[in-house]
Every structure is written in C-alpha cells, then in structure tokens.
C-alpha cells in the first residue's frame, strides 16, 4: 500500500530531522537562563495548541514558493517544500517537535547536574560532559519523546493537507487516504482496513516506546 509507505517515510524522516534540534532546544530551555527563554518555550509549543490548519497555512506562508524561507530555499538550493512529500516531512517534524522537546526537557531537568560538574572537573568539556554523561542517562526520555513525535506525525492531517496537499503517491499519507476514501460511496471495507492499519501502527509505536524505555531504565537502575 502506497499510503503506508508514504506515511512511514514522512514520519521517519520528519522525526529524524527534529531529533538533534529538539535535544538542543530542550537542553537550552532546561539548563540555561536567558532572556527570551519563555518565548522560545512558547514558540516550541505553538504547533501543539494551534489548529493544524493554521499551522499548515503559516507554513505555506513561510515555506511556500513565495514565502520568505521558501523563496530562499528555492533560489539557493532549488528546494521546493510545498505540495510534495518533503513538505509533508517538514509538517511531521514541526508537529511532533513539541512532544519531543517536552519529553527530553523533562528528563534533562531530572538528570543530576552534579554529574556533569563532576565530569568537568575530570577534564570533560561542557559538550563532552553532556554527551558522555547526561545523554546516556536521558536516553529513555529521548526514545519516549521520539516515538511520541513519530506517532503524532503519523496521525497528522490538517497541516499536511494545507501545506502539502493530498496528492496520491506523493503526499497522501494514511489519514489523508482515509479522508479521500470516505468521500466516495461504498468504500467502507477499504476505510475499515485503513483504520485497522492505523491502529496497529499507533499501538505498535506506543508499545515499542514503553518497552524500550523499560529496557533502558533497567540498564540504568540506581541512576536517579
């Protein structure tokens, strides 16, 4: 099924894209005090509270051919995002972002800062201490946040259809396909199959997340 592979591709690439900036911003918000910190926090959470169609429209304004960033990307790299699968991946990245940042930020806040201080006195740089000490310790949080963001991306509908449209074979993910299918009469059987598929996918992601963080927790027991 084409829609399934598009869903997975868009979801995976989108989530992968958001991983490094997500951890960086989570760290900034958790550990640094700077002017504009609250603003950044709010900005990150925006896609979570904004109606998805609004998010999609804003993306269109910014990343569309005529948008500020879109025009720049097209002129510099010949990259077009609106109305293709790359755009859908961007939507996946942005809508999953708040969930990822939230989970990672909470685990960074729970991680003992004293361990990093100890690492610094032992000769590690600030970044080195984070990578060698804190990162392994917050891995359960990162995994949980990533899978949550991935599951959110799989279910994305409003922003995707607004920004990337509903193009079969290009941007038509499972939810978009379901929407199209339900428009035509006598398609309940196909619709039901898509519903089951979505359920399995979502439940699978949740189960995987739970299982992975349990394994990690067991490995790190005594950590906190």
């Amino acid at each position: 099924m084409e829609a399934l592979s598009i869903s997975l591709k868009v979801g995976l690439i989108g989530t992968a894209l958001s991983l490094v900036p997500g951890i960086a911003i989570a760290w900034l918000i958790a550990r640094r005090r700077f002017p504009g910190r609250m603003l950044l926090d709010g900005l990150v959470h925006l896609p979570l509270v904004l109606p998805p169609v609004v998010t999609g429209y804003l993306l269109l304004l910014l990343f569309g051919r005529a948008g500020y960033i879109g025009a720049f990307l097209h002129a510099q790299f010949g990259l077009t995002l609106a109305f293709n699968w790359k755009g859908a991946a961007l939507v996946a990245a942005i809508t999953g972002f708040p969930l990822l940042v939230r989970a990672v930020r909470l685990s960074i806040e729970a991680a003992d800062e004293g361990l990093e201080a100890a690492a610094r006195t032992l000769g590690a740089s600030g970044f080195g201490a984070f990578v060698s000490v804190t990162l392994p310790l917050i891995m359960p949080g990162i995994i949980a946040g990533t899978l949550l963001a991935f599951a959110r991306a799989l279910g994305e509908f409003g922003a995707t259809i607004t920004f990337a449209a509903n193009i079969p074979g290009e941007t038509q993910t499972l939810p978009l396909l379901l929407y199209s299918v339900l428009q035509s009469p006598d398609s309940e059987a196909l619709g039901l199959r898509i519903v089951v598929l979505s359920l399995v996918l979502a439940a699978g992601a949740l189960f995987l997340s739970e299982w992975l963080s349990r394994v990690m927790q067991r490995r790190l027991r005594g950590a906190s």
Partner: peptide
C-alpha cells in the same frame, strides 16, 4: 579558565559516580 582546564580534583559530598 574553564573547570576542565584547571586540573583541580574535586571530591564531592556525594560520590557522583556515573551510573551507566
């Protein structure tokens, strides 16, 4: 000078061993 450049050993009240 950054702490890692000072070569100062610090034994804290708690052991602060890296748990992993």
């Amino acid at each position: 000078l950054k702490p890692e450049k000072r070569r100062i050993g610090y034994v804290f009240q708690e052991p602060r061993l890296f748990p992993h």
